[in-house]
Design a protein around this nucleic acid. Structure first.
Lengths: 149, 149
DNA sequence: GCTTGACCTCAAGTTGGCTTGAAGTCGTAC
DNA sequence: GTACGACTTCAAGCCAACTTGAGGTCAAGC
């Protein structure tokens, strides 16, 4: 039960085989052997995949994710940089909160154009004040976000 | 002081002119007139731009952002969809929290491979349990996130 | 032993979000 | 009145992150 073939991984993780092959190609995951031609993965790959999904949700590029945890869960990045990343995430959570509040506001407020609504402007301005010159790349294509969006 | 030309907008917002033109092309912002050939923007564009940045940080595509607020701050989306988006954000904040904790853990934990560390696995599994079949696109993307840096 | 179907490889295509480059247009300062 | 430099347009290019397609392989079931 330690080994699963690519189809099973795909089904269990929801990540399509083409993507799994791609992830392997770029070194994010590793297949442990072959059964005929078929890739066999260790069950741990599922955990790695959730880590990747998590990182993508947070707006990191695949390269950044690879760097954070390394392909075997071994980080390539010095501790203080990791802490800095964690702090970035903290800030990003605040941004999300603002956006969430903004959306909730838009959903309730009857003003025709929200840019004219004082409450809305206040929400945004508070966020803007706090904002830092973005260090992180484009998000997606991040990239590419999304990537990836 | 209501009007700024594109250069000033670029400088104040940190968004390059090429991007501003692109945003206008896709309908995210609007120039109010021209001075010669030069686009002139209403000062409100700065607020719209922070809204866009906020949305990108949250991993939305430009299209989604446009839909949420409309190009004049008029949302094109029914209220309950907006609320649903807000709830998505809420969930995303939880994801960020997990990732943040994971990073902090990686920064401190001496285990050589974190996938073997029980604490780490627990963190991830908790997140995995909670996860929902992703409705959202890429991120990042870019890729951003795209990501394309 | 042959068919089936899920896998394989490799190259090319796609999408989103921009950026770059060439060639041209203006308003302002001199 | 001309030189400058910041703008303009338009087409093409670029990167990330995949997906698609053509053509091939292989093990398991019949």
């Amino acid at each position: 039960m330690g080994m699963m073939d690519i189809g099973e991984v795909a089904e269990r993780s929801g990540v399509p085989p083409s993507t799994l092959r791609y992830y392997e190609e770029v070194g994010l995951i590793r297949s442990i052997s072959r059964h005929g031609l078929r890739r066999q993965f260790d069950a741990d790959v599922l955990l790695t995949l959730s880590l990747i999904e998590l990182g993508k949700t947070a707006g990191f590029s695949l390269t950044e994710i690879a760097g954070m945890f390394g392909k075997d869960g071994r980080p390539d990045i010095p501790r203080d940089q990791l802490r800095a990343k964690a702090d970035d995430l903290q800030r990003q959570m605040l941004d999300l909160r603002v956006l969430r509040d903004a959306l909730r506001h838009v959903a309730e407020c009857p003003a025709p154009s929200h840019l004219e609504c004082p409450t809305f402007r206040k929400l945004l301005k508070a966020a803007t004040r706090r904002r830092i010159p973005r260090s992180r790349s484009r998000i997606g294509h991040q990239g590419g976000q999304r990537p990836g969006k």
